[in-house]
Amino acid sequence: MFQIKLLPRLKVLHSFVRHQHNLTSVKSSLPNNLVLLGKAKDQLNVDHDTTDEVLPPDDNVPVIRKCVGTYSLCKQPAKVWVDSFANTEMVYETAAELNPDIFSTHPRIDVLHDVVKWQKVYREVDYRWARTRAEMGRGRKKPWPQKGTGRVRQGSTVPPFWKKGGIAHGPRGPKSLYYNMSAEQLIKALAIALTIKRVQSDLLIVKDIDVPMPNDVVATQEPLHDNALTLKSSLEEILKARSIDRNSILFVHGTDAPENLNLAVIDKRGWNTMPLVGLNVLSILKHDKLVLHLDILDELEEKLIWNMTRYPWLEMPHNFYKDMPINRDNLEKSLDNM
C-alpha cells in the first residue's frame, strides 16, 4: 500500500568534524561550508574561487591559548585565528586552540531544536479560553415541545452539537507553558550552537574586545551621546574591515564590561553585548556572527566540561564540593581563611 521512499545516505554529514579542511574542490554554486566526500567529491571537481577565502591557521602559527579540559581521544583541538579590535585591519598572526568537545561536536539538530523550542515556550502563558455549555448564558428553556412538532426532541439550545452551542473539551483559562529542560541537554545544545558558529566561520575570537577611542578625539564626559557616536563610527570601521558590518553580531565579554563597546553598540540595532553568564543557544542562533573575548574562553570551557562530566544528581550545585568551577578562586580563598 505504501511506497517507502528511500532516503539517500547522508555521506556529507558523517565526517562533519574530521574532514573540514577538504574545502579545495567545492562547486561554486554550493555553500562554502558544505563538505563533499567520496563520489560526490570526484563528480563535482570544480575549482572553487579561493581568493577571498581565509584559510585556517596551520602548524607554524604561534598558539597563544591552549584549550582547557579533557576531550575525546580521536579529536584534535580546533584552531582559530585570534583577532583584536585594537587594530582596524584584521591581522593574521596568532591562533587559539579550542576544546573540540565544545567547538567541534556532531551537530545534533534535534537537540538544538528541543532547546530552542524550550527557550521560546517556557516563558509563555496560554490565555485561550472557550465557553462550555454551562457558560453560554442561555439554554434553560426547552426550544420546542417534546411531541407534535415533527422535529427531534431537544431540551436545550447549548449542547456542543448545536450551532452556537458550547465547546466541549476546549482550551480553558490561562495555562503556564513552563516545563523543565535537563541540564545535560542544555549543555549539549550550547556546544552544538558554538560548533555551528565555528564551522560556518561565524565565530570571531577577539583579544581586545573594547573599542579604542580615536587619538584625535578627546573623550568628553558630557554629553554621553557624543562619545557613543564617535565610538560607533570607529566600531563600524573595525567591522567593515572584517566585512561583517552589515550582520547582526553578539559580543560576549567577561565580568569586566567593556565600556566603550557598550557605548558604541547602544544605538545600533542588531549589535548586542552580553556577559558570559548570559550566553544561550537562542541568542547565538539569532545573531549572524558571534564575537567571543579571548579571556572568557577558559571559564566557558571549564564550566561546560565540568557540566559534561559532573554527577547528574547535582541538580542545584552549591559550594560544598571540592572541585566546583564556579567562583573556585573565591571558594579556595574563603576555605583558607576559615
Binding site: 565540568w306 559532573r310 554527577y311 547535582l314 560544598f320 564540593y321 571540592k322 572541585d323 566546583m324 576555605l335
Partner: peptide, 17 residues
Amino acid sequence: SKEDFKWVKRLLPPSKI
C-alpha cells in the same frame, strides 16, 4: 578553630566523576 578545618575539607565530596 581554623586549623581543624582541614578535616572538614577532607570530608567535602567531589562534584565530578
